[in-house]
Amino acid sequence: MEQPKLGKIILEQRKASGLTQEELVARCNINVRTIQRIEAGEVTPRGHTIRSIFAALDIDIAQWQTKATVPKGTKKEAKWIILAFFSGWLYFLLAFWEGFMDYQLTISLDAAISPWKYTLVKLGILMFYSCYMLGFYQVGRLWENNWIKPAALLGIAGIVICISADLYLFYLDDSNAMAVMAGESIVFGSIYIVFGYGLVKYQKEFGNMALAAGIVAILSGLAFISVVFALIGLVLLAVSEVLALVVLYRAYDEIHNQNS
């Protein structure tokens, strides 16, 4: 169910039942601020929150549910999305180690970095990031988002190219390292602008968290494309990834609650 329609329904039904927001809170065990934001149409609550409020107001949820808000997903799809969520966190954490090693190589080409550790970290990034992006592809398919789906596939293609280039430079030829790094920055910057816009399109489904994730991802992409501000882009990317992971979990939560 889309906002602001959901908020209006809850507001009207609460008033029709002669309840104050505080009395509704007492019935469904949700804090007042959350009720206020839902009624104002500022956020789209999770499925279990909607059910709790509707139960407290004696509303038949089946009467109001629409296909657009929560698409029907299977348990298998829910499992895939939660796997992508955990893979995203592993990628996020592993990226700090990757960044530290790449920084060492940038300041000194003779940095003492174990080849097998470097390779394993790069392959781990490739695997976890690809799984993470496939989760967003699945979400894009379920919620019919034609920006997220190609962005996710482009993200996988981009990480394959960049990891291959990194390993080539590490083992075979480091003479063009700066040019290759600039190219990688531009590639991922372009991808994250598309990905960010796709997240912005999820505002109705997942609230302001998706909007914030999308805006920060777009800013990160622009910083990467500039190359000069790539380091700022890395900081923005870290923030965007955390917000995007929250969005991914909310998508899982919606599908999981349908099948529970």
Rank of each mutant, 00 (worst) to 15 (best):
E2G: 08
E2V: 09
L6R: 02
R14W: 02
S17Y: 12
T20F: 14
E22W: 13
V25D: 12
A26T: 13
C28R: 15
C28V: 10
N29G: 05
N29D: 13
V32Y: 15
R33F: 09
Q36I: 09
E42A: 07
E42L: 13
V43R: 04
V43M: 05
G47M: 10
G47I: 06
R51V: 06
R51Y: 06
I53N: 11
I53C: 08
A56F: 04
D58Q: 15
I59R: 07
D60C: 06
I61M: 06
W64H: 10
V70L: 11
P71V: 08
K79M: 12
L83I: 05
S87H: 04
S87E: 03
L90T: 02
L90K: 00
L94E: 02
L94Y: 01
W97R: 04
W97K: 09
M101T: 07
D102S: 04
S108H: 12
L109S: 13
L109A: 12
A112R: 11
I113P: 14
Y118R: 05
L120Q: 09
Y129P: 05
C131S: 06
M133F: 05
M133A: 06
G140E: 03
G140T: 03
E144S: 11
E144A: 12
N146H: 13
K149V: 10
A151T: 14
L153H: 00
V160L: 14
I163S: 06
L169I: 13
Y171R: 09
S175V: 07
M178F: 07
G183Y: 01
F188A: 01
S190W: 04
Y192M: 12
L199Y: 15
E205W: 08
E205D: 14
E205P: 03
G207D: 00
N208Y: 15
N208Q: 13
M209N: 01
A212Y: 14
I215Q: 13
V216R: 14
V216K: 15
I225L: 11
S226A: 12
V227F: 05
V228K: 15
I232C: 04
L234G: 05
V239K: 02
S240T: 00
E241T: 10
A244I: 05
L245Y: 00
L245Q: 02
V246W: 14
V247F: 07
Y252V: 11
D253N: 11
E254N: 14
Q258F: 07
N259Y: 07
